[in-house]
């Protein structure tokens, strides 16, 4: 177990956690807060799935900011492997070392020297395990569903034992267990082995009230009434069955900021049509709604 002093003070209670995140302008529901609280207390990774743009990545950033910890982010992609995520030997420097000392060292001595930690290039997972200072770092493994299934296998040792084994150096264990947040957009099913090692939470689209609250906090100069109009419009848009891609909260925030930048204070057909591309990211959706459906959506109460 980690030294209790490394657990951030706000993690003493769920309410404390919610307040701390609220100070970072992150609006969190109690269910998700409980999952984060338990991840902190049980020292288990937290897998967060949900719709794109609904705050999965943001929660890791908010947690790191609230605790003053480092946020170490590993963005997953197809082909991600150990050398990009865990560690790699600095081959050019090793070679240089060999050339420098080939006359005054034996081969055995050289072999020992070049596999020293100073030749180790630390990638995000290893950096998270080694930590820095007494505060638990936040390790964000973002969009794990983009990585290959083989990469999930690589993660297992890190997620369950918070250690990695480097053949030349031995096993490196975390002194301060990081708070690990994994996110997935569910473009594919993650393996059972990873899921079993994690607590789980799901972030869906927020209701209108919560979306207004998010708008108020993240776009501070937005008038209250305008925020309600925007949230209500986005909720109506999101409820359309035929959308190829529904707008997330991130899109709502961008749209609100754009309307504000254009000097708007209420929803008018012209500016809404011109900026609809910030909400709808599919060409067919954009064309259909801009051409045919916008008046109906705007007119709805």
């Amino acid at each position: 177990m980690t030294d209790p002093s490394s657990t951030p003070p706000f993690a003493e209670s769920i309410d404390g956690l919610m307040e701390a995140l609220s100070r970072q302008q992150y609006v969190i529901e109690r269910g998700l807060a409980t999952a984060v609280f338990l991840a902190l207390r049980l020292e288990k990774p937290l897998l967060i799935e949900g719709e794109p743009g609904c705050g999965k990545t943001e929660i890791a950033k908010a947690l790191a900011a609230a605790s003053g910890a480092d946020l170490i982010r590993l963005q997953c992609y197809e082909g991600l492997d150990a050398s990009a995520s865990l560690y790699e030997w600095d081959y050019p420097r090793q070679l240089l070392e060999i050339r420098l000392h080939e006359r005054d060292r034996t081969t055995a001595e050289l072999e020992t020297e070049i596999y020293a930690e100073r030749f180790l290039l630390r990638r995000p997972l290893l950096r998270a395990l080694e930590g820095s200072g007494g505060v638990r770092p936040v390790l964000l493994i973002d969009e794990l569903d983009r990585a290959d299934e083989e990469f999930e296998g690589l993660l297992l040792e890190v997620l369950s034992d918070f250690q990695v084994t480097i053949p030349e150096l031995g096993t490196i264990r975390a002194q301060t267990i990081p708070l690990v947040i994994l996110t997935s957009n569910r473009t594919r099913e993650l393996g059972d082995a990873v899921k079993r090692r994690c607590l789980y939470a799901y972030i869906g689209y927020p209701n209108a009230e919560k979306e207004v609250e998010i708008l108020r906090r993240r776009v501070p100069h937005l008038p209250e009434q305008f925020a309600r109009e925007i949230a209500s419009f986005v909720q109506r848009l999101r409820s359309q069955e035929d959308l190829a891609k529904r707008p997330g909260v991130a899109e709502t925030l961008d749209w609100a900021a754009a309307l504000l930048a254009l000097g708007e204070s209420s929803l008018r057909p012209g500016p809404v049509g011109e900026t609809l591309g910030l909400l709808l990211k599919d060409a067919h959706d954009l064309e259909t709604y801009r051409r045919d459906r916008l008046p109906t959506l705007l007119a709805a109460p």
């Binding site: 269910g31 899921k195 607590l199 789980y200």
Partner: peptide
């Protein structure tokens, strides 16, 4: 929910 579920 946090400990027993693994999907929506």
């Amino acid at each position: 929910r946090a400990t027993l579920a693994k999907s929506p």
